[in-house]
Nucleic acid binder design. Structure first.
Length: 189
DNA sequence: TGCCCGATTAACT
DNA sequence: GTTAATCGGGCAA
């Protein structure tokens, strides 16, 4: 039986937590899979939502680590983040893609697709497949409906530039599971 | 108040 | 390769 991730797991810098999340298992109401792609957003990062200070949308980022920050993207999609670092640092890790392992039927129904590879390969797709919405903003990650389990200790992680941003786009703060077929995009190197 | 743009996706040509 | 869908934050007036 895999080990549950304690809340203390998130009480570190996003640059440590983000690569460590690769290979971990994320379940939401018993549906989910293995995390294969994430991005780190530090509060000193111009691309981070928290960069310009607290607002009603990003308030959760300014709270304690180990909680979910869910926001609406482009007015259409939901995106899931894990809040990190000591309280008030307002840094978070964006979950970009998972490899579906549990609740495949529910995910296919919600996404209207059968192709396993397209179910959760993107931040918006992942939230649709797991039925995560703004209603779940601020929930603790170490209690239901969330379940997080540690992955294998030795995992090959690759890094590269983040996707879909214009500010600080040169920073290599996107992390992925090497060779995974479930990434939202290939790593160039 | 009004305007622009974004941590996206899918359906086009 | 391009574009529409759609809405809240941020900034100018």
């Amino acid at each position: 039986m895999p080990k549950r991730l304690a809340r203390a797991f998130f009480s570190r810098s996003v640059h440590e937590v983000a690569p460590d999340l690769i290979g971990a298992t994320l379940l939401f109401k018993r549906v989910g899979g293995r995390i294969v792609e994430v991005e780190a957003y530090h509060h000193t990062d111009p691309a981070a939502h928290s960069f310009r200070g607290p607002t009603s949308r990003n308030a959760v980022m300014f709270g304690p680590p180990g909680y979910a920050y869910v926001y609406r993207s482009y007015g259409i999609h939901w995106c899931l983040n894990f809040v990190c670092e000591p309280e008030g640092s307002a840094s978070a890790v964006l979950i970009r893609a998972i490899e579906p392992t549990a609740g495949l039927a529910a995910m296919r129904r919600r996404r209207g697709l059968t192709d396993e590879r397209l179910l959760c390969s993107g931040p918006g797709r992942l939230c649709e497949a797991l039925a995560i919405t703004g209603a779940h903003n601020g929930l603790a990650l170490d209690a239901p409906p969330f379940e997080l389990f540690a992955g294998p200790s030795a995992v090959e992680v690759v890094a590269g530039p983040r996707i879909g941003i214009t500010k600080a786009a040169d920073k290599p703060w996107r992390y992925g599971l090497k060779g995974s077929h479930f990434l939202s995009k290939r790593f160039s190197s």
